[in-house]
Design a protein around this nucleic acid. Structure first.
Length: 487
RNA sequence: CGGGGUGUGGCGCAGUUGGUAGCGCACCUGCUUUGGGAGCAGGGGGUCGCCGGUUCGAGUCCGGCCACCCCGACCA
């Protein structure tokens, strides 16, 4: 029995988040039933609960993508080698991690097929046929798909050989319009992550070294994880006319001239589930923001032999009432587990609100309600419960965002001295804002010396002062960049 | 691709100097429990990663292979 022993040492427990963050992450993914390693190296099995989170991310983001005028379509998984090779930088960037289909049965194919690492090539070739006139523009397409990048080192959700994502591909008449689209979709990601996932992100532009193979400019939304490391949560690329030239995506303009389109592409992936875990998790496990949670409230009936049926009936009725108010509810009616076990179980899975209902409560026309984010527990009347739960879910949503914002603020520093820079990075918990001379040489040297990479030059606050000198080289600074250890 | 480590019931592990496999959790049955990880009793489940060698006998010793994990390199 010994309840005291059932903390850390308990078999069902997880590693301490404070002591071993990466072990904690794996434990949460597995014990909260989000995903598992598969029989294929580097690939994962996304389990129903984890997939439920992804589905909510998908549905919610899909609405925003459609609300900005984009339409969903689907393109092939296979990319002919000749297509992939058309954009030189692109193929060079992806070649090392592309798996190839070379045979059908025993017959070799005339041309081998890449399993898509991303779809610029196959979509570009298609767009060339779709577009004739300036009246066909802008062309605003999105696809939900799986892609494959054969990674040498993988981590559940954060970097797997196959992953699920969304990739937007657009064509525009002018560069200005395409650039505007690039920034607009970066904003859609930023707002989506803030409003739905309670994850604050920094919008910025990537350095030459970190940008997408084939892009002119790559923009990113960078998030700070619970250990202070950075995670690129989404990207938006201004492709210029690189792919348009490679695939001859041309249109006849008003002035009767053939012109190449200006393109963008942008994406987020199942990595967002990893971002969610590492942003909001705590020592007890996962904390899922209510708007994304597959289960927003779990009802735990306190079942006693003599009153079990009556208690269950009240619990089920309560669930129906909450569902009528669009709350996603589950009644945990497993009669072979005691309440204490269930409390821990649902806390580990991060369900935002827990409702306990037992004989004593029923008598008093109340229930006990606990918030996952703060741990606060209070008695609430059964009358008008749905409205109060809805209110509480909003409070949890806001609370998680506020906590994440405060954490990032507390762990961001503006630095002008390289010694201080080194110390902060070595401690590994900080976003360091520092002047950069804009050269790849300096960027590489800083990385070699400290392991810190330039996450981005933030769109807000990325301008260097005239007096600023590069943190390492001492040369006049071109930007204020954000440096951090990154996943 | 370099360095290190680990492969034994579903999971986590133990297994002395070689003698034919065990523990915890989980699972099944029954009874008692149930408001912070329940108790008792009974029960099911393993060709010890693979191949070969040494030996009367190998989870244990030797050789080869494979897989996975950790650290690095690499990774829009």
């Amino acid at each position: 029995m010994g309840k005291k022993n059932k903390g850390k040492g308990f078999e069902g427990g997880i590693a301490s988040r404070a002591e071993d963050f990466s072990r904690w992450y794996i434990d949460v993914v597995k014990k909260a039933d989000l995903a598992d390693h598969s029989d294929v190296k580097g690939c994962m099995v996304i389990k129903p609960y984890g997939y439920g989170i992804w589905e909510n991310i998908q549905q919610s983001l899909d609405k925003r993508i459609k609300a900005t005028g984009h339409l969903n379509a689907y393109f092939p998984l296979f990319v002919p080698e000749s297509f992939l090779k058309k954009e030189a930088e692109h193929v060079e960037g992806f070649a090392p991690e592309v798996p190839w289909v070379t045979h059908v049965g025993e017959e070799p194919l005339d041309e081998r097929l890449a399993i898509r690492p991303t779809s610029e090539a196959i979509i570009g070739a298609t767009f060339a046929r779709w577009i004739q006139s300036y009246r066909d523009l802008p062309l605003l397409i999105n696809q939900w798909a799986n892609v494959v990048r054969w990674e040498k080192r993988t981590r559940l959700f954060l970097r797997t050989s196959e992953f699920l994502w969304q990739e937007g591909h657009t064509c525009h008449r002018t560069e200005a319009e395409a650039r505007e689209e690039t920034i607009k979709m970066l904003g859609v990601y930023h707002d989506f992550m803030r409003d739905e996932m309670a994850i604050p992100t920094i919008r910025g532009i990537k350095s030459e070294r970190e940008k997408f193979a084939g892009a002119v400019d790559t923009y990113t939304v960078e998030a700070m994880m619970g250990d202070g490391w950075a995670l690129q949560a989404g990207t938006s690329h201004f492709l210029g006319q690189n792919f348009a030239r490679a695939f001859e995506i041309k249109f006849l303009d008003e002035d009767n001239e053939h012109k190449f389109v200006h393109q963008t592409s942008w994406g987020v992936s199942t990595r967002l589930v990893g971002a969610l875990i590492m942003s909001h998790g705590d020592e007890k496990g996962l904390r899922v923001p209510p708007r994304i949670a597959p289960i927003q409230a779990v009802i735990i009936p306190i079942l006693r032999k003599d009153s079990a049926a009556a208690t269950l009936e009240v619990a089920n009725k309560m669930a129906d009432d909450l569902r009528a108010s669009d709350i996603r509810v589950k009644v945990d009616d497993r009669d072979w587990l005691n309440p204490g076990f269930k409390f821990h179980d649902w806390e580990l899975r991060g369900v935002p609100v827990r409702i306990e209902i037992g004989p004593r409560d029923i008598e008093a026309n109340q229930c006990m309600v606990a918030r996952r984010d703060t741990g606060e527990k209070e008695a609430l009347s059964l009358d008008g419960l749905a409205a109060k739960i809805t209110e509480m879910l909003d409070a949890v949503q806001a609370g998680l965002l506020a906590e994440a914002e405060a954490f990032r603020e507390a762990n961001t520093r503006e630095v002008r001295d390289f010694e201080e820079f080194k110390v902060l990075i070595a401690e590994g918990k900080t976003f360091v804002r520092a002047p950069w001379d804009g050269t790849t040489e300096t960027e590489d040297e800083i990385k070699a010396l400290t392991k810190a990479t330039i996450r981005c030059i933030p769109l807000e606050g990325g301008e260097a002062d005239r007096a600023d000198r590069d943190i390492l080289s001492g040369a006049p600074a071109k930007h204020i960049a954000i440096f951090a250890r990154a996943y």
